[in-house]
Amino acid sequence: MVETRYGKAINQALHDALAADPSVILFGEDVGEAGGPFKATRGLQEAFGAERVRDTPISEAAIAGMAVGAALSGLKPVAEIMFMDFVTLAMDQLVNQAAKARFMFGGRNSVPMVLRTPHGGGLSAGPQHSQCLEAWLAHIPGLKVVCPATPADAYGLLRAAIDDPDPVVVVENKALYALKGEIDDSPAAVPIGRARIARPGRDATVVTYGAALHTALQAADALAGDGVDVEVIDLRSLQPWDEAAVLASLSRTHRLVVLHEAVEAFGIGAEIAARMADVGFDELDAPIVRVGAPFMPVPFAGALEKAYLPAAADVVAAVRRTLE
């Protein structure tokens, strides 16, 4: 095991994929010479050339569409959209083209493309550079969506996404790029669709993903001091999501909190809560509680954003509600 950072793990995954398969190419705004807005692609153009690591103009619709066309023509493109807020400009190509091509073409072709994009607040980036829009994409049949919370998963899920025959959106978190964590000396792909027990516990389950995992773990530490033993499930994949793993955890703890940084209303948490209220009904000893951002744009000022983002105290309060 070696220690690395989340952003470095992404860089290593891209490096290893480019080295392993000549059909892998990268493109996006400033991913080449500048090394990416968050330095995730630093050094890759020097290593693999400007033909395979391309700087594009500021043209998100064309970036996403090029990925579809290149994927239909024998390549495995990995496109980057600089901030997740900008996927709004690429939605036709993601939703109407990438997601549907396999189905629309009678299952005779797939679209092996990856779209990397960072979401999340905490950097005072304001209302148009902080949103968590993954629920939109998870709602579209034909897209896969993953959201790594650790350096090891940032590597493993990205390798799995590049190997996947279908379009995968890899949602990174801007606040995590500098996060340190352990990774194998020879890391492998992490299968898409499988959750991970980030912390085992007996009294209540908190299901989460992305940067909110670390909020959940803080809350679990705080509750442990009061003798409450919380199990934390890191979903890792949002579409498909690991329903069996969540149900198994619920069957052990009988209490469920779903946490995400995205707006709570109509979110990923609503889907998980609805499914568990159905298939897990007999296991529940308390109502399922959701914790997410309030129904408002992400604010800019530090004090406002701090109040906006779900905090460990919110998770502690939610777990306590399930124990009442």
Partner: peptide, 23 residues
């Protein structure tokens, strides 16, 4: 690579296909 129900949508798909040919 498909007819298309969205006006203009075939253009960036063609662009990506041309990129693949060149690459």
């Amino acid at each position: 690579l498909g007819a298309n129900g969205i006006v203009g949508a075939g253009l960036p798909i063609t662009l990506g296909s041309a990129l693949a040919h060149k690459t």
